[in-house]
Amino acid sequence: MKSRISIPGAQEKPRRSIDPTFYLILPLLVLLIFFMVVPVFRIFALSFFDPDFTIKHYMKFFQAGIYLQILLRTLVISLMVSVCCLIAGYPVSYLMADVSPKTAKILIILVILPLWTGILVRTYAWMVLLGRQGLVNKLLIYLDLVAEPIKLLYTTKAVVLAMVQILLPLMILPLYATMKGIDRDLLKASKILGAGPLRTFWRIFLPLSTPGILAGFTLVFIISIAFFITPALVGGRKDIMIAMLIESQITTLLNWGFAAALSLILMTMTLIIIGLFHKFIGINRFVGSGDT
């Protein structure tokens, strides 16, 4: 905008002393400082001092091509998982936001239910399903679709599938919350203005659900990036994710400095990607301030 035009209740931020409600977030703030900010700085220091200042860990990362390769692979798998979660979760959320509150409640419980079982348990369940003697192969053979068991387990597809199943609730919940908040009159307005159901979806519903898409996508992407049990158990030899690398640097090789450097590189990459994503999808366009 060229200039701020005074509109009652909008954008006016008068200077004043600290809002007393600020103190409500104080406990969380203290918690975050001690368990988030301080450790991040510790890791930061760990990656640069050994014990004197050094950038050898970072040199190692960028010189040996393998680490970049693994980072890239991690990002690609996480992206695939996030996109698949979105594709699978969007219609479910749409349904949940559209049905009666009673049915929605049941659906929410069904969505949350898997969160009560551990990641390891659910990963093992996928191993049982996708194995050579697993249910899927048995069914395929029974139906005469294949003669020999096909390789499903220990593939990238298996990793993505298992991770999508594990992370899907984290996509659905923010999507549902956003969709629930969309004023149904807007859809009616679109229809009476001449847009059919499909165009109403594309022009109105989808753009208005982008905050939910962003929230869900960000959540799933960030958690995907740190996955290591699932890819280790159901992935093939090429499905090395960076968290697995960090874990082995810490527990087997005791090279904490390099592990710290890996963690920081991963964190930076994640922030950059999420930042770009938010910029391009343009969340600020209609939820933030109007000065875009």
């Binding site: 194995g131 050579r132 387990l153 280790a232 158990l233 030899r237």
Partner: peptide, 23 residues
Amino acid sequence: IKPHVTAWWTMPAQPAQLLADGE
């Protein structure tokens, strides 16, 4: 041997499980 290895295990319990499951 690389092309013939289906599963590269990382946890000690894995190989026994893989054999038991016929994997």
